[in-house]
Computed example of a mutant assay.
Amino acid sequence: MSLNKRRLIFCTFIYSCAAIGLLGAALGTKRWVVASARRTSNTTESVGQVNLGLFYGDKYLNIGYGLRTYSVDVIEMMKNDPEIMIYSLWVLTVIFIMAGLTMTIAAAVFAVINSAITPISALAGVPGLYFWNISAILFELFAAGLWVTQFYQRLQFNVMSKDDRRNKWTSEGNASLGYSFWFIILASILHMINVFTVFWATCSRTKKSPSPIIEEKTNGAIMLY
């Protein structure tokens, strides 16, 4: 493999590292869903904002006497109120993100190896680069699809706890997908770029000059005459 091709393969390492950062940020940030809230009994003075991540979130509520901030434990909230999310979808979302992160780390490691040497093993070589990146794409898109399902099945209607709902708080119709969700989409796009880059690096061939078969046939025909 030429030096230029190895440089292209190394570029996939950089993109994989960026994808690792995006996936880690998606797991740790609190913006998978964002929603504004209001009290049905006091819509003019009450105002609220709820931000939920996969594990933690923040809640800002003001009933007219000043803004109060609360921390949200998403897992605890699901235990206390099973109706707020579909638990199986939440679990599968986390599992697929972790699987995508594992594939991304593998893609980064083997990109470095392939930029330095030519491995003998298929999974460690170029076929492996396709496998790790395409697997990461699939896992990340599955996770995104599961969260979209979660959103349209439950979260678009309510992100408020039981106690908040008893106090007439509602978020129905005011929720949207936050930037933490879009980190997953961006990571999958980076892996798509990796797949294209590997293809470009390994399938481009130096054109060989055609063998002079026609010229030899012509010379042979002249000798016959």
Rank of each mutant, 00 (worst) to 15 (best):
V72M: 03
Y87N: 09
R6Q: 10
K59W: 02
K162Y: 13
T202E: 15
I63P: 00
K79G: 01
I95M: 09
W90K: 06
K168T: 12
L3D: 09
D164M: 08
A35F: 01
A26C: 08
A175R: 12
L23Q: 06
Y60N: 02
E172T: 13
I185Y: 04
I97M: 13
L123S: 07
R166C: 08
T29E: 08
L92I: 02
Q153Y: 04
L3C: 04
I75G: 00
S161R: 07
T202Q: 13
T202R: 13
A143P: 07
T12S: 11
G24Q: 02
S16C: 05
V195S: 07
T43I: 15
Y87I: 03
S204H: 10
L177R: 10
I189L: 15
P212N: 15
S188V: 14
A111W: 05
L8S: 09
T218H: 11
K79T: 12
A19R: 08
M223C: 04
G24V: 06
A144H: 07
Y70K: 07
S171Q: 03
I9R: 02
K59P: 00
R39C: 01
A201M: 09
F151N: 08
N4F: 12
I189E: 10
M1T: 04
D81M: 07
I95S: 02
I95E: 04
V126P: 00
F196Y: 12
T43K: 15
A143E: 06
V33A: 14
V74P: 01
F10W: 10
T197Q: 06
L101S: 07
R205P: 00
L92E: 10
F151C: 10
S115C: 10
I214L: 15
R38M: 06
A143D: 05
A37N: 06
G220M: 13
S46P: 02
F183S: 07
L52I: 15
L8T: 02
S36N: 06
L89K: 13
T104D: 01
A221Q: 09
R7Q: 02
I86N: 12
A144N: 05
S176A: 11
L67Q: 10
M192I: 15
A201E: 02
F196N: 09
G100T: 12
A108R: 09
P212D: 14
Y15G: 13
M1V: 09
V109F: 12
G28S: 14
S209M: 11
W147F: 15
C11Q: 01
V33L: 08
G57D: 03
N133R: 03
D81I: 05
N114Y: 07
R154A: 15
A175L: 12
S121K: 09
D164N: 11
F110W: 10
I184D: 01
N167T: 02
T102I: 15
Y152G: 02
I9G: 03
A25N: 11
D73P: 01
N80Q: 13
K162P: 00
E216M: 14
